[in-house]
């Protein structure tokens, strides 16, 4: 069910997808970030459906600037998203947290959970900077990752189609996974090709089913 949740910040409530039957097990799913968020959206929603079939409730909130949010991405910071993740955990009464790729950086750390194929901040920036260098070169502009990153830390930067502010880039460059009770889950545990690598967004029902089964086992 699509509804809103009281996301902290100037933009006001944001959308959230909920499968809520009032069960005791309530999983907060933090969506993958940036381009990977688009590529893994279908997969993530299918994981929610598979969890629902197992009688497990789950919640997928939008953070400001992401997905359907009308807040400008340029104004967002990683620290603000971390605060929003904490607020979402409280609002939805989460008993378990599933992070997807770089959303492991937003893990509030006080609730047990699983980090699916976690990606750190440097990893996020690396691919986006590399893509920027490649598209610059196609346009006849000679750029390099280091100089772009330094410029981005001072002035913000358009990466992967997203206007990222200076604070976001600085915080991503330094971001490490928060300490928490969560365990990491590699793609090899799911099997199949990583869907975030796909040039065209795609879906794999078997992978969604497998992740739901692993999460279901983890929550007992």
């Amino acid at each position: 069910m699509l509804g809103t949740w009281p996301c902290p910040g100037d933009a006001g409530p944001e959308l959230a997808l909920s499968c809520d039957s009032g069960s005791d097990t309530r999983i907060l799913i933090l969506p993958a970030l940036f381009e990977e968020g688009n590529k893994l959206r279908h997969f993530t929603v299918e994981v929610m459906r598979a969890l629902k079939q197992r009688g497990i409730d789950s919640f997928l909130p939008d953070f400001s600037g992401c997905n359907e949010s009308i807040a400008p991405m340029a104004a967002q910071t990683l620290v603000a998203w971390q605060e929003q993740a904490r607020a979402a955990a409280e609002h939805f009464g989460a008993t378990f947290i599933l992070t997807v790729r770089a959303s492991a950086l937003l893990d509030p750390g006080n609730i047990a959970g699983l980090r699916y194929a976690p990606l750190d901040g440097a990893g996020v920036l690396k691919s986006m900077l590399r893509a920027r260098v490649m598209s610059d070169r196609e346009a006849g502009i000679n750029s390099d990752r280091e100089a772009l990153l330094e410029d981005g830390k001072r002035n913000g930067l358009r990466l992967g189609g997203y206007e990222l502010g200076a604070q976001m880039i600085t915080q991503l460059a330094e971001a490490e996974f928060p300490h928490s009770a969560a365990t990491s889950l590699a793609q090899s545990a799911i099997g199949g090709g990583a869907l975030w690598l796909r040039a065209e967004p795609s879906h794999d029902a078997e992978q969604a089913e497998k992740l739901a089964a692993i999460v279901s086992e983890a929550v007992g």
């Binding site: 990893g123 691919s127 986006m128 590399r130 893509a131 260098v133 598209s135 390099d144 040039a199």
Partner: peptide
């Protein structure tokens, strides 16, 4: 056509990770 700069960037990063090499710009 689907192999755009973002997809190639992901491809190169994945090759780096799996083969433990470093690909410079």
């Amino acid at each position: 056509p689907e192999l755009d700069s973002m997809a190639v960037a992901g491809l190169l990063t994945e090759i780096e990770d799996r083969l433990d090499i470093l690909i410079e710009d």
